[in-house]
Structures are given as C-alpha cells and as structure tokens.
C-alpha cells in the first residue's frame, strides 16, 4: 500500500503512474505508482530482482539503451510525461543525473571528467569555476585540487565515486538518481558519501537504490519497499509493496512483507 499522506502536497519532482517495464515479452516490474517529492531523499529497498534498479533507470530513460526494454504507463516530470514522444532522452538526462553502482570515472583527467558533461551540454559559463564548484560540492575538492590533470582512475574507490557525484552535479541537474552508490565502497568511504547525500538534498531531489537497510534509514526521508513474486514459468516480477516515511517503514510498517524484510527475516 502507498501512504498518500506521506507525500507532500506540493507538486512532486517525479510521479510514476501505472509503470510497467518489460524485457522482451517478460514483465519485469508491474504497476508502480509513486510520487517523489522535491528536495527529499527517497530510498528504494528490496531483495535482488525486485525491480528497484529497473524503476530507477526509467526515471532518466537509461532503459532506452537496452534494445529489448519497453515501458508502459507514465512518469511525470514537471508536468510532462518522460516517455512522451516529444521528450528527448539526451536532453532529459542533463536534467536528471545518475550515479552508478560501481564508480565509473572516464579514463580522462579529473578536470575533464567534470568538464565533459558541461562541454557536450553547451555550458557557456566559466569552466574552471564550474569544475571547482562541483568538486567542492561533492566534498572532494581538497583531496584533488593539486592533481586536477591526473587520471580519474588513479583515485581510490571512494574518491572515484565522489568524483562521479561531482560529475553528475556539474551539469546542474534537478534530480540525482543513485544506483547502490556505496555497494562497492569501504565503510569509511560509504560514510563520506552518505554525509554528502545529506548535504545535497538541500538543493536536489535524490532517489537512491540501496541494499543496505541501515543506509536507507540513515539517509532517506521516504522509503519504498519493493518485492518480487514468482510467475508461472519461473520468471519473477517486481512490484511496489509499500511506500511511506522512512521511520514508518522501519518501525511501523503496514505490510507483513515489509516487516519481515526490514527485520531481516528474508532478502
């Protein structure tokens, strides 16, 4: 069930309605309905294969890159359906940024990792200033300011991930999608990224997929719990079980499945 009262009355940043995702002819996720409020952190949790990453990738149409993927239903972003024919995915991705599971800095200098997105998107401001701002914003400036021309691959895993966050910020998106951003990081780097998420939510709406329930409870305002059910023929379909304030999900969930999952009984 979805608790409407939890979802702030103002116009949401994203609103998914009757969202279905297919890979080929198999349904992967069915009938997701939810609103992502502005300037909040929303966590997606759930067991493997429940479709939480799939839903996330619908928000910036990364699923378009998988030839067999097909999406029905609507996702509204500022009053338009993301999947309307008039919406260009390339333009959309400038406004909805993404950070991936594994840090994926480009094999370029740190400076050019940041500048790349700005250049292709026709940034007319001062590039040096933008690079510094973005790196400061991602709390990595002090660590890299003396080696901006070195390869982004030379950084540690945690630094690489903050570089990727800085790269996403640099193109001034309104929403940042994070797909398990800490799963490849050590605990200290994880903590730094979590602090950063706290900072960033002042200016951005953040949707974060995580396997780590402590992380969801630490960083998010709202939590959506997804689960999967087996279909005949062995395939699994994911669906949204419950979506509410994070405190409610973790301390007073409405559904038994949620209760079982957050208390570690499965998943």
């Amino acid at each position: 069930m979805v608790n409407e009262s939890a979802q702030i009355a103002t116009e949401p940043a994203l609103r998914a309605e009757n969202l279905n995702v297919y890979y080929g002819s198999t349904l992967a996720v069915r009938e997701v309905n939810l609103k992502i409020p502005k300037n909040k952190v929303v966590a997606f949790i759930g067991p493997s294969g429940c479709g939480k990453s799939t839903v996330l990738r619908c928000f910036n149409r990364m699923n378009d890159l998988i030839p067999t993927a097909r999406v029905t239903g609507t996702i509204s972003f500022q009053g338009t359906n993301l999947y309307a024919p008039s919406v260009d995915p390339v333009e959309l991705r400038r406004r909805i940024g993404m950070v991936f599971q594994k840090p994926n800095p480009f094999p370029k200098s740190i400076y050019n990792n940041i500048a790349f997105g700005a250049r292709i998107n026709g940034y007319k401001g001062d590039m040096d200033e933008l690079v510094e701002m973005s790196l400061r914003r991602a709390a990595i400036w002090d660590e890299v300011k003396d080696k901006l021309q070195e390869s982004g691959l030379a950084l540690s895993g945690g630094q690489q991930q903050r570089l990727c966050i800085a790269r996403a910020i640099a193109i001034a998106p309104e929403i940042i999608l994070m797909d398990e951003p800490c799963s490849a990081l050590d605990p200290i780097s994880t903590l730094k990224v979590e602090e950063l998420i706290h900072e960033l939510k002042q200016q951005y709406t953040i949707v974060i997929v995580t396997h780590n329930m402590q992380q969801a409870s630490r960083v998010s305002d709202l939590t959506a719990f997804y689960n999967a059910e087996a279909l005949e023929g062995g395939s699994k379909v994911g669906y949204l079980v419950e979506y509410d304030r994070t405190t409610s999900i973790f301390h007073n969930p409405a559904e038994k499945a949620t209760q079982d999952y957050v208390s570690g009984r499965f998943g």
């Binding site: 390339v90 991705r93 480009f106 790349f116 292709i120 990727c164 790269r167 996403a168």
Partner: peptide, 27 residues
C-alpha cells in the same frame, strides 16, 4: 570498453556519437 563507462556518458546527457568519440574511443 566496459558498459559502465558508456552508461556514465549517457547519464550525463551525451548522445551516442558523443559517448563514442569522447569516452569509448579514448578508453
């Protein structure tokens, strides 16, 4: 060249050619 690099470029709003020329070929 790993998929993740292409995805990184697309997520920044790169077109296919921009992803190829600026990220895939250098890699």
């Amino acid at each position: 060249v790993p998929r993740s690099l292409r995805d990184g470029a697309y997520a920044l709003g790169a077109t296919k050619r921009e992803a190829i020329v600026s990220v895939v070929l250098p890699a």
